[in-house]
Design a protein around this nucleic acid. Structure first.
Length: 952
RNA sequence: GCCCUGGUGGUGGAACUGGUAGACACGCAGGACUUAAAAUCCUGUGGCUUCACGGCCGUGCGGGUUCAAGUCCCGCCCGGGGUACCA
C-alpha cells in the first residue's frame, strides 16, 4: 500500500517521499509493518487536501444557503435530526444523511430550490443521567456533544444550510414548543366539525345553549374551579390523574412505548404502576384522521401497517346489559355482537366502577381481596405470567338484553380498564381468552357459530353460520353482526361503535432536562402563561434529582413562580415534544414573532422527503403527524400531513470479532480448533484483529487480565470467529467515520455507504470492501489527468460510442436516484468509468457532464474536477444534463436463443428486423440444426429486442 | 399467537413491468510492470462433469400456471423486525 499525508504532492514529477506511517496507522494495532515505507509516483488524487479545500469553499461562499424563492419550485429534504450522544457518530449513523444529501444535491441540479437543514434533538436522558452522576450541567454536555457531531458531519461534506440549525434545548426554539402547548391547552376537539377549535367556542356554547348534559343555567352557577375542571375534559392539553408507568430508578414516568415487558427501554429498570397527576395530549380524537391520512402519503406499506396497528381501529358495538336487581346497565364493547347468545359470563376489569355495586355481600370479601392482589401486582409481574388465569365471581348477574337470560358477572385482570368500557361479554365458544378462562373455572361453553370443534378449542374465525341463537340462527356471521346491532339500536340498548387502541399521550416527565411546561397554578387551578412571557426558561437547580418529597427537579429552583408569585408547573415535556414540530421551524428559523411566517409555510408546505429510522414508527412519527394536524386545524400549517414521502434507512450492523477462552483457564483456542475444547466466546476489539487474525501482543496489552493469556494456534496464527450484530461499544465492533475519512476520504465513504446495498435494508459493514470504491475514485481522477498530474482533456467532438456511454449513464443515474435506488447508481458510475477508460476517453464534453452527474455522490472530487475544467463557480450551481434517446439507440441486438426455455446460443441481428425474418434467421442458424433434429418446431416465440424461444 | 419483512456464488449485492440469473464490487487464483514491494493493468472465478467442444444442475423446500418463473399462484421451512390478554 502506498500512503501519503496531506500536502505532500504539491507539484508534478516522480519523487520519493518518506512517510511515517505510525501516525496513519494510529487507529490500528501495530502489525509487522516497517517503520516507514518509500512511495513514489504520488500524482494520484489527494483527497485529504481537496476535501478540506471544498468544505472551506462551501462554508465561505454560503453555497448551500437557502432563501425563499417563489420563482423556483421548492423541494424539502429532511433527515431525522440526531440526539447528540457522547459516543459520537459511528459509520451507521450517516447512512441516511448521505442518501438525503445525494437526493438534495440531485434536486438542486434539477433546478429545485432545496431546503436541506439539520439540527439536534438536544433534550434527552443520557445527558441528564450524566449530570446526576457528575454534576456537569446537561447543557454543557450537550453542547460538547453537538460540537463533536458537527465536526464529524462536516467532514462528510453535507450540503446542509447550517444557518437554519434548530436545537430543541435552545430557548428561541422551545419558545414555540411551549407556544404550541398553550394552543393545545386553549383548544378542544369538536367532534361535529372533526377538528380543533378554540376552547372559547365551547365556553360560549355552554353559556348559551349548553353542551354534554350541562345546561347554561348549570354552567353559570358553577364555581370557577368547577368550570375549569369541566373544561379540562375537553382541552387538547389537559391535566388528569392517571395510572402511569413509574420508574423509581429513573425517578420518572415513562410512556408505554418506553416500557418493554415491565422494564424501562433505557437502562432496563423495573417499572411499576402509580396514580399521579399528569399532563396529557388528547391525541385519541385524531385517531381516525391519523388513519385516513396514511392513504395520502408515500410511506412504506410496512410502516403504514405498524401505524395502523398502533392506532388499532376496531368496529363493533356498545351493548348495554341490565344489571339484575339494580337500575344500572353494564356497557360492554364487542366486535362480535353476533355471538351474544353464546355469552355465558361477563367480565369486569378490576378497576371497573360498577364492580362494587354488582358484587354481592357474600362475595365482597374475596372480590376485594382479588382487587387488592391485582393492584399490588406490578405490570412486570402481570406480564410475566400472562398465562396464569385468575379471577373471581362477583355473585351478581346481568341479563341478556334480548332474551332476559341471566349471565353471571366475574372480575378478572385479563380485561383491561383502559380499553372499551373495561367490561366484556365473554363468549368462550368463540374467543380463545374466554375459552381458557371458562375451562379454568369450569364455566359453560356454548357453540353459536358452526365451523369449529369447541370441545377442542374456541372457534374465533369470522365465518360460519349462526346456531342456537334466537332470531339470528341460520344467518352468516357478517349478516348476524349487522342484524344484532340493528335490533339493539332499534330497541335502544346498543349502538354501532368504533374503538381505537390509540391512547392519549402522557406529556409530563419528572425530569430536569426538558422544556418547562408553561403553566402556573392559582388556587390549584392550572392556567397558561401569557404568550408574551415565553420562553419560560429552564431554571438553575442545585441538583438534577427529585426533591426529598419526591417532586420533580424543577421544584428545587429558587422562585419557580410567576412574577405574581403563583407556583409554576414542575414537570417538563417529554422527548417527543421538541421533535414533533422541528421541521416547521426550519422553514423560518430566525422569526422572532412567529413559529414560522405565513409566506414560509405557503412556500415550503411540508417535507417532501424524510429519511430516518423505523424505530420512530409508533413514537415520533405519530406525535409529529398529530402535532401537524393540530397546527393545520388552527391555520398554521398548509398541509395536513407533515412528511409526504418517507424512507426508513436500514441499520448498518457491525462485524464483531470473537476469541474463544477455554473454560476455567486463561487459554484461548483458535477458531478452527474449538471443536476439541470446552470454550466460551468473548468479544474482542476489532482494532486488535486483521483479516480475522488476532494480534496476540496487542491483545495481551488490551486488558490486565489478559496479560498472561496463552494461545493454541493454527499454523502459527490465532484465527478469530466473527458475528454480525448491532454496532455498539459493548460489542467492540464500532467503526468510526473519521477513521475511514482519514484513510480513504469522505467521497469514498459516501460512495461506499451507498454501494453497500439498498438504503432500506440492514447490512453489515465490512471495511475491506471499501477498496473497490477507493479504486474507482482514483480511476475517475485518471480520466482527467495524465501520469504527471496534468489535466488532460481533448476538445474535439465526442465519438458516438463515448456519447452512448455517457447518456446511458445519465439515464440510469437519474432514474435510479429518482426511485431511491442509491446503490445501483454507484455500479452505473463504475461501469461508465470502466468503459470510458477502455475507450481512452479524455473528451471535455463527456468529462464535464460526468463531473456533474458524479457531484451528488462525490461532491469534493466533482468540485475539484469541475474547477480544473475551467469553471469558477461551484458545480452545485450547474444543472443535471438531460439524456438524449438518440445516443442510446443501438442498431443490432444479440438475441438469446432458447430451445424449450433453455438458452442454447446467441445470434446478433438488426434491431428493426420483422418477427418473421428473425424466426427465419434463427431457424437457419447453423447451431439450430442440433436442437431441431430435422423436425419442424412446434412453435417459435419471438419477442423483438428481448428473446427468441423455440418449442420443439 | 397475529402483522410486516427477507431468504440469489466464498462475501456485499444486481436482475425496475415474467424474457440471457449472478451486473458492479470484495475476496481468491494466475499473469504483466518492478531488484523487490506498493500502486496500476490484464485473465479467470456458481456447482458438478469433460483433454476439449460441450453437457447437466442451480435463486430456502415441495407443488402449480406459462413457450418462458428469482419474479406470478398454493402449501411448508428458516432468519430479522413490530405487536399482544385491545374483547
Amino acid at each position: 500500500m502506498c500512503f501519503f499525508g496531506s500536502g505532500i504532492c504539491l507539484d508534478g514529477g516522480e519523487f520519493r517521499v518518506k512517510v511515517n506511517i505510525s501516525r496513519l496507522f494510529s487507529n490500528f494495532a501495530p502489525r509487522n509493518r516497517p517503520e516507514s515505507i518509500y512511495c513514489k509516483r504520488i500524482m494520484e488524487y489527494n483527497f485529504s487536501e481537496v476535501e478540506k479545500k471544498w468544505q472551506r469553499y462551501w462554508t465561505e461562499h454560503g453555497t448551500f444557503r437557502t432563501e425563499l424563492d417563489p420563482a423556483k419550485p421548492k423541494y424539502y429534504v429532511l433527515d431525522m435530526f440526531p440526539y447528540p450522544s457522547g459516543a459520537g457518530l459511528h459509520v451507521g449513523h450517516p447512512l441516511g444523511y448521505i442518501a438525503s444529501d445525494i437526493y438534495a444535491r440531485f434536486k438542486r441540479l434539477k433546478g429545485f430550490n432545496v431546503l436541506h437543514p439539520m439540527g439536534f434533538d438536544a433534550y434527552g436522558l443520557p445527558a441528564e443521567q450524566y449530570a446526576i452522576q457528575t454534576g456537569t450541567h446537561p447543557a454543557e454536555t450537550t453542547e460538547k456533544n453537538v460540537i463533536r457531531y458537527r465536526e464529524q458531519m462536516d467532514k462528510i461534506g453535507f450540503s446542509y444550510d447550517w444557518s437554519r440549525e434548530v436545537k430543541t434545548c435552545d430557548p428561541d426554539y422551545y419558545k414555540w414548543t411551549q407556544w404550541t402547548f398553550i394552543q393545545l391547552f386553549q383548544h378542544w376537539y369538536n367532534p361535529e366539525l372533526q377538528k380543533a377549535e378554540p376552547i372559547a367556542n365551547l365556553i360560549e356554547r355552554l353559556a348559551t345553549s349548553g353542551y354534554d348534559n350541562v345546561t347554561p343555567h348549570l354552567w353559570k352557577n358553577w364555581s370557577e374551579k368547577a368550570q375549569q375542571e369541566f373544561l379540562m375534559n375537553y382541552r387538547l392539553a389537559y391535566l388528569s390523574d392517571a395510572v402511569v408507568n413509574w420508574c423509581p430508578a429513573l425517578g420518572t414516568v415513562l410512556a408505554n412505548d418506553e416500557v418493554v415487558n415491565g422494564f424501562s427501554v433505557r437502562g432496563s429498570h423495573p417499572v411499576e404502576r402509580k396514580l399521579m397527576k399528569q399532563w396529557f395530549l388528547r391525541i385519541a380524537p385524531y385517531a381516525q384522521r391519523l388513519l385516513d391520512g396514511l392513504e395520502t402519503i408515500d410511506w412504506f406499506d410496512s410502516l403504514k401497517e405498524i401505524q395502523r396497528n398502533w392506532i388499532g381501529r376496531s368496529e363493533g358495538a356498545d351493548l348495554f346489559f341490565p344489571v339484575k336487581g339494580h337500575a344500572d346497565y353494564l356497557k360492554i364493547f364487542t366486535t362480535r355482537p353476533d355471538t351474544i347468545f353464546g355469552s355465558t359470563f361477563m367480565v369486569l376489569a378490576p378497576e371497573h366502577e360498577l364492580l362494587e355495586k354488582i358484587t354481592t355481600p357474600e362475595k365482597r370479601e374475596v372480590v376485594t381481596a382479588y382487587i387488592q392482589l391485582v393492584k399490588n401486582r406490578s405490570d412486570r409481574e402481570r406480564m410475566a405470567d400472562v398465562k396464569k388465569i385468575s379471577g373471581e365471581f362477583t355473585g351478581g348477574y346481568c341479563l341478556n338484553p334480548f332474551n332476559g337470560v341471566p349471565i353471571p358477572v366475574w372480575v378478572a385482570d385479563y380485561v383491561l380498564a383502559g380499553y372499551g368500557s373495561g367490561a366484556i361479554m365473554a363468549v368462550p365458544g368463540h374467543d380463545q381468552r374466554d375459552y381458557e378462562f371458562a375451562k379454568h373455572f369450569n364455566l359453560p361453553i356454548v357453540e353459536v357459530v358452526s365451523g369449529g370443534d369447541i370441545s377442542e378449542a374456541s372457534y374465533d374465525a369470522k365465518e360460519g353460520i349462526l346456531i342456537n341463537s334466537d332470531f339470528i340462527t341460520g344467518m352468516s356471521v357478517k349478516k348476524a353482526i349487522r342484524a344484532v346491532i340493528d335490533r339493539a339500536e332499534e330497541m335502544g340498548f346498543g349502538t354501532r361503535t368504533i374503538n381505537y387502541r390509540l391512547r392519549d399521550a402522557i406529556f409530563s416527565r419528572q425530569r430536569y432536562w426538558g422544556e418547562p411546561i408553561p403553566i402556573y397554578y392559582k388556587d390549584g387551578i392550572p392556567y397558561p402563561l401569557p404568550v408574551s412571557e415565553l420562553p419560560l426558561r429552564l431554571p438553575v437547580v442545585d441538583k438534577f434529582l427529585p426533591t426529598e418529597t419526591g417532586e420533580p427537579p424543577l421544584a428545587r429552583a429558587n422562585n419557580w413562580t410567576t412574577s405574581e408569585g403563583y407556583p409554576l408547573e414542575t414537570t417538563t415535556m417529554p422527548g417527543f415534544a421538541g421533535s414533533s414540530g422541528y421541521y416547521l421551524r426550519y422553514m423560518d428559523p430566525w422569526n422572532p414573532d412567529r413559529y414560522f411566517s405565513k409566506e414560509a409555510a405557503e412556500y415550503w408546505q411540508n417535507v417532501d422527503l424524510y429519511i430516518g429510522g423505523d424505530e420512530h414508527a409508533t413514537g415520533h412519527l405519530i406525535y409529529a403527524r398529530f402535532w401537524n394536524k393540530f397546527l393545520y386545524d388552527i391555520g398554521l400549517t398548509r398541509n395536513e400531513e407533515p412528511f409526504q414521502k418517507l424512507i426508513n434507512q436500514g441499520k448498518i450492523q457491525g462485524r464483531s470479532s470473537l476469541v474463544y477462552r477455554e473454560q476455567k483457564s486463561n487459554t484461548f483456542i483458535s477458531c478452527g480448533l474449538t471443536g476439541s475444547y470446552e470454550t466460551v466466546p468473548m468479544h474482542v476489539d476489532i482494532s486488535l484483529v486483521h483479516d480475522d487474525v488476532l494480534d496476540i501482543e496487542a491483545f495481551r496489552q488490551w486488558r490486565p487480565d489478559l496479560a498472561d493469556a496463552e494461545f493454541i494456534l493454527e499454523e502459527g496464527k490465532y484465527h478469530c470467529g466473527h458475528a454480525i450484530e448491532k454496532m455498539s461499544k459493548s460489542m467492540y465492533n464500532v467503526v468510526n467515520p473519521d477513521q475511514i475519512i482519514q484513510e480513504y476520504g469522505a467521497d469514498t465513504l459516501r460512495l461506499y455507504e451507498m454501494f453497500l446495498g439498498p438504503l432500506e435494508q440492514s447490512k453489515p459493514w465490512d471495511t475491506h470492501g471499501i477498496e473497490g470504491v477507493f479504486r474507482f475514485i482514483k480511476k475517475v481522477w485518471r480520466l482527467y489527468h495524465d501520469e504527471t498530474g496534468q489535466v488532460r482533456v481533448t476538445d474535439e467532438a465526442p465519438t458516438t460510442e463515448e456519447l452512448r456511454v455517457l447518456h446511458r449513464t445519465i439515464k440510469k443515474v437519474q432514474e435510479d436516484i429518482e426511485r431511491f435506488s442509491f446503490n445501483t447508481v454507484v455500479s452505473a458510475f463504475m461501469v461508465c468509468v470502466n468503459e470510458l477508460s477502455d475507450l481512452k476517453c479524455h473528451n471535455r464534453t463527456i468529462l464535464t457532464n460526468l463531473a456533474i452527474i458524479l457531484s451528488p455522490y462525490a461532491p469534493h472530487l466533482a468540485e475539484e474536477l469541475w474547477s480544473q475544467l475551467g469553471h469558477t463557480e461551484s458545480v452545485a450551481g450547474s444543472s443535471f444534463p438531460e439524456y438524449r434517446e438518440e445516443y442510446l439507440i443501438e442498431d443490432t441486438f444479440e438475441y438469446p436463443v432458447s430451445f424449450n426455455g433453455k438458452l442454447r446460443f446467441k445470434l446478433t441481428l438488426p434491431l428493426g428486423l420483422e418477427k418473421e425474418l428473425i424466426e427465419k434467421a434463427v431457424l437457419e442458424a447453423p447451431e439450430s440444426a442440433k436442437w431441431l433434429q430435422r423436425t419442424p418446431p412446434k412453435k417459435v416465440i419471438v419477442v423483438p429486442g428481448k428473446i427468441v424461444n423455440v418449442v420443439v
